[in-house]
Amino acid sequence: MEIYGAPHYFTAGVQAAHRKMTEPRSPGMSSVPQVIPTHTEPSSQAVEMDPVEYTLRKRLPRKLPKRRNDVYVNMKTDFRAQLARCQKLLEGGGHREICVHGLGLAINRAINIALQLQASSQGALQLAANTSTVELIDDLEPEDPDEAGEPMTRTRNNSAIHIKVFYPDPQ
């Protein structure tokens, strides 16, 4: 099971993985909190107003080394399967604690999983949630007829949650 198949767990939020944008600040992008128009070539500072069409391609979010007890939640795998995976880690896997990570749309599901785990353990498990911001990178490929456009990249931020699910120490 590909858990950190990163794009799945946030593309569900913003459906089209690529879209033509005549106006980059269209309402469709309102889900993106800060659009940082950085890192274009200095000459094309007015790129916002450029009539050139761009194709948006999202890169994978930064991947970090994964321990055995890390569970990255996505929106594509069935919820029950993900829950079962967590339960297996806690019960059969012999881990005292696991970390459930969720990014973007999957935050909701990550919380759900954690709560379900707690509920099914009759209070033996405790939760500790942390939030963070993940920087994501988009590539903008120009689609102009005279092919002079430079490709651009921009960053946007997305929220993420990291929930520690653990058995508290006896003392």
């Binding site: 459906q15 089209a16 879209r19 033509k20 944008m21 005549t22 106006e23 269209s26 469709g28």
Partner: peptide
């Protein structure tokens, strides 16, 4: 249902 979200601009 999803259609509206897809392409607001173009």
């Amino acid at each position: 249902s999803r259609g509206k979200r897809q392409r607001p601009g173009a």
